[in-house]
């Protein structure tokens, strides 16, 4: 039985600059995989490759047993099955919170407006944002905006959720509310890939941790193994740098 999402021998270069070199990772269903690594280690590029925003130079990506990296894949349909949230919230400023959430269900998945509206409001209710449903995004705090962005990403019932540095632009109090939301989604069984610098959160939520260094999977394993007994010098250096910066 293969994993829900598989990356096999992924290679990506920008011109001469080799960014990802022979990266292979399995993402089992309902698991949370946390990707850590310094800036420039290839984290963001890896995340971008996962929903085909970057063209691969070699290797293969499978979603639910289907090769989505094959030439001629319907990229829009793949993205419809993968929810993505990024550091910049990118809510649509001209739409209310509810309309932000229902846009993709209505346009991409053909859900009727009243049904989509009801689902969106139910989601907002569950995550404590019911009173913001008819506000415009600019009236929300950063944490609220990012939570809406995450709700928008899961409103289409994706098979996989990609979270790339979703808390990097937020202050600690707001980070907490976003992380709570993510933990709840995890409990409900959402499969997710998380790139983050929040190591405390990574320890708590991760089923496995992947340490990326110079475009390669340098070390990977359970959170206990990675944070408790790092094997390679590079990982030790990375963790001690985080420790010094007060992030661990």
């Amino acid at each position: 039985m293969s994993a829900l999402f598989e990356i096999k021998n992924l290679r990506k270069s920008f011109g001469e600059n080799l960014v990802l070199d022979d990266v292979s990772i399995d993402f089992p269903a309902q698991s949370a995989t946390v990707i850590i690594g310094a800036s420039g280690s290839g984290k963001s590029t890896l995340m971008r490759c996962m929903n085909l925003l970057e063209e691969l130079n070699d290797g293969q990506i499978n979603l639910d047993g289907i090769d989505i990296s094959a030439y001629g894949t319907d990229i829009d349909s793949v993205r419809g099955q993968i929810g993505s949230v990024f550091q910049a919230f990118n809510l649509f400023p001209h739409l209310t919170v509810v309309d932000n959430i229902t846009l993709a269900p209505r346009l991409v998945h053909g859900v009727k407006k009243d049904v989509a509206d009801k689902n969106a409001r139910a989601l907002l209710q569950r995550f404590g944002l019911a009173d913001k449903a008819d506000e415009f995004p600019n009236l929300l705090s950063g944490g609220q905006q990012q939570r809406v962005a995450i709700i928008r990403a899961v409103a289409t019932n994706p098979k996989l959720l990609l979270l790339d540095e979703v808390t990097s632009a937020l202050d600690p109090v707001l980070i907490a509310e976003v992380l709570t939301l993510i933990s709840e989604l995890k409990r409900e069984g959402m499969t997710m890939v998380i790139a983050t610098h929040e190591m405390g959160f990574a320890k708590k939520i991760a089923d496995s941790v992947v340490f990326l260094h110079k475009g390669r999977v340098h070390e990977s394993g359970t959170p206990d193994a990675i944070f408790g007994s790092p094997k390679t010098q590079e990982l030790k250096d990375f963790l001690s740098a985080l420790h010094q910066a007060g992030r661990l």
Binding site: G59, Q60, A70
Partner: peptide, 10 residues
């Protein structure tokens, strides 16, 4: 890889 060559040909 053979896969990549195939993809480039396509």
């Amino acid at each position: 890889s053979a896969l990549q060559l195939q993809r480039e040909a396509a």
